[in-house]
């Protein structure tokens, strides 16, 4: 095992300080007594209290949660199907177009995706709201799910599927009893990825939301435009806490599976 040189140690310390200090500062100041975000005047949790009284934020959080859950579930189903098509379906008419449409949204600027979807919804006369945000999020998230799942699928030994057929499964039965359990980790991380993407999205939601629905990022954006506020710090701290908790528990559970495997 190599020892880190002083250069590498300094680089790592500075690099991670750069990545994490801003977030740390934000969290610290969410407990600040003063309305002035940048001047410390004492510990308090009053901004959390304020936050839970703010109905606009609560409403937006509820919208975001619903959009996130529904759109990432849709995206996971569609993205897994698309991964199957890319990895297993072989040649078919329009395959190049299909894979192009999977990869293009990954690099498409959000402003363009948002604008194009908005123009679509208007030209077919759909009322914008929760539904249109869900459709938009599901569309770009399915591409991410497809990438995650298809990379797992391409490592998948196809003879496992053939073995299932050989032992009497129908194709559908083989999918649910063999393929799905094996690719499940990728499908789950695809769902989580979609969910965070949806939770995070401001631009596409702003285009497709219409006046009737406001998501949390939209709400944060409009209040942040007016300047820094301790309430937003409190909200950010809660969101960061939830994500950290999720990531840590996910990594612990995979670690537990690994150690369990090693024990035997």
């Amino acid at each position: 095992m190599r020892k880190l040189s002083w250069f590498n140690t300094v680089t790592l310390s500075l690099g991670f300080a750069f990545l994490y200090l801003p977030i740390l500062i934000l969290i610290i100041f969410s407990f600040n007594e003063s309305k002035l975000v940048t001047v410390w005047s004492g510990f308090s949790v009053k901004w959390y209290g304020e936050l839970f009284k703010n109905e606009a934020f609560l409403e937006a959080a509820w919208v975001t949660l619903r959009v996130g859950i529904i759109s990432s579930t849709l995206a996971t189903v569609l993205g897994t199907m698309a991964a199957f098509v890319l990895v297993r379906a072989g040649k078919f008419l329009g395959r190049t177009l299909f894979s192009g449409m999977i990869y293009a949204p990954l690099v498409m600027p959000e402003v363009i995706t948002g604008l194009s979807l908005l123009l679509l919804f208007i030209s077919i006369g759909v009322d914008r709201g929760l539904m249109t945000i869900i459709l938009a999020h599901a569309t770009f998230s399915m591409c991410y799910v497809c990438v995650v799942v298809s990379s797992r699928m391409s490592q998948f030994d196809e003879s496992l599927d053939e073995a299932a057929l050989d032992l009497g499964c129908t194709r559908l039965d083989a999918f649910f009893s063999v393929t799905l359990p094996i690719i499940a980790p990728a499908v789950i991380s695809g769902w989580l990825l979609s969910f965070t993407l949806s939770l995070d999205d401001l631009v596409i939601a702003s285009f497709t939301a219409g006046p009737s629905a406001t998501t949390l990022p939209m709400q944060i954006f409009s209040s942040v435009k007016l300047g820094v506020s301790p309430e937003i710090n409190a909200l950010s701290t809660i969101l960061i806490g939830l994500v950290t908790l999720g990531v840590i528990s996910a990594s612990l559970s995979t670690k537990r599976v690994k150690t369990r495997k090693n024990l035997h």
């Binding site: 990545l19 977030i23 500062i25 940048t38 944060i220 300047g227 950010s236 950290t244 990531v247």
Partner: peptide, 24 residues
């Protein structure tokens, strides 16, 4: 540690700099 910020909100991470860089 490199991947973790991916999962936290983009918007919040940018917002965190507003308090650091402002005049006060």
């Amino acid at each position: 540690l490199i991947i973790l910020p991916f999962w936290t909100s983009f918007l919040i991470r940018i917002y965190s700099w507003m308090g650091i860089l402002s005049n006060t």
